[in-house]
């Protein structure tokens, strides 16, 4: 029994991070109506930038390295939009998608160039997990769940209680109408990219803290985050949270029944089935950041 409980707990931990990735992805989709394939690279860059700062020549302590790393990640996110996506946003959709694949490939190989393809770690000594009722959880993992709750809570506040959040929702609802109403589109798109990169970078850092760093970490997690987006309904922030948790739990519990080699297969198959059976997501909301 504890075995299954532990699997569910691991699922919740993984799911809370997937939710962080998914929220960014879904916000970009909600506003710009395109899937940013390079979203995963923001995850990886967030993690690798921290690695860059804690090693020589910078040798900054870990907790001080996080903030500058996140700032640079945001700059990458905003840069993507400014130099690649904005010039293409009114053109052919396929152009935009191929360009985002190009961005993703460029950023991923830059990581390979600088840090190599090998597995890397922050080099923190492993700590025995805290044990309760036969379950085990490490302090890092508690931090992961805490961070997810904090970030998503802050997002909720922003979307519902501030003017900026309201304009964001308006733009997601109808871009042209929002622009006609005098909403500053530049400000909104900047906010979306900053938030998406912030969430991706922070999630990437936490994930790397818990496991390791590798150049393809962005791609795999992007796909899983996408599964969460689909599950929750594209453009729906709360759906992304529930979707993330669901994917995390499903793939972890699934291991009890399949070979561990099929762990990723489970979430992929789930995406596939969902796309076909419920293209509008479980909550059936296709548009609007709720």
């Amino acid at each position: 029994m504890t075995y299954y409980a532990q699997l569910v707990l691991n699922g919740v931990i993984a799911g809370s991070i997937y939710a962080l990735f998914a929220v960014g992805l879904t916000m970009v989709y909600g506003v710009f109506r395109f899937i940013n394939f390079a979203h995963g690279e923001l995850i990886a860059w967030g993690a690798y930038l921290v690695l860059l700062l804690i090693n020589p020549p910078f040798s900054v302590p870990l907790y001080l390295a996080v903030l500058p790393a996140l700032l640079v990640t945001m700059a990458i996110g905003v840069g993507q939009d400014r130099y690649v996506y904005q010039p293409l946003i009114h053109g052919n959709r396929i152009t935009l998608l191929i360009a985002s694949i190009g961005v993703s490939y460029l950023l991923r190989n830059t990581i390979r160039l600088i840090w190599g393809s090998d597995l890397m770690t922050y080099g923190i000594r492993p700590v025995r997990g805290i044990q309760f009722a036969g379950l085990s959880i490490t302090p890092t993992q508690i931090l992961m769940i805490g961070a997810a709750v904090f970030f998503l809570g802050a997002l909720y506040f922003l979307l519902t209680r501030t003017m900026l959040g309201k304009s964001l929702r308006a733009v997601a609802d109808n871009m042209e109408l929002a622009a006609v109403m005098g909403i500053n589109m530049k400000k909104v798109s900047l906010t979306v990219w900053i938030l998406a990169s912030l969430f991706a970078g922070a999630g990437g850092f936490l994930l790397a803290l818990d496991t390791n760093l590798e150049p393809v970490m962005g791609m795999t997690n992007m796909i899983k985050a996408f599964a969460a987006v689909l599950l929750g309904g594209a453009g729906n922030v709360w759906g992304a949270l529930v979707g993330g948790l669901f994917i995390g739990i499903a793939e972890n519990v699934g291991v009890a029944f399949f070979s561990p080699g099929y762990k990723d297969f489970i979430s992929f198959a789930l995406i596939f089935l969902l796309l076909i059976l419920r293209p509008k997501g479980i909550f059936g909301v296709l548009t609007g950041v709720r």
Binding site: Q6, L119, T211, E214
Partner: peptide
């Protein structure tokens, strides 16, 4: 080359 082997460990 995976970063997370927790499922295997649990098994």
């Amino acid at each position: 080359g995976k970063t997370d082997y927790r499922s295997e460990i649990l098994r």
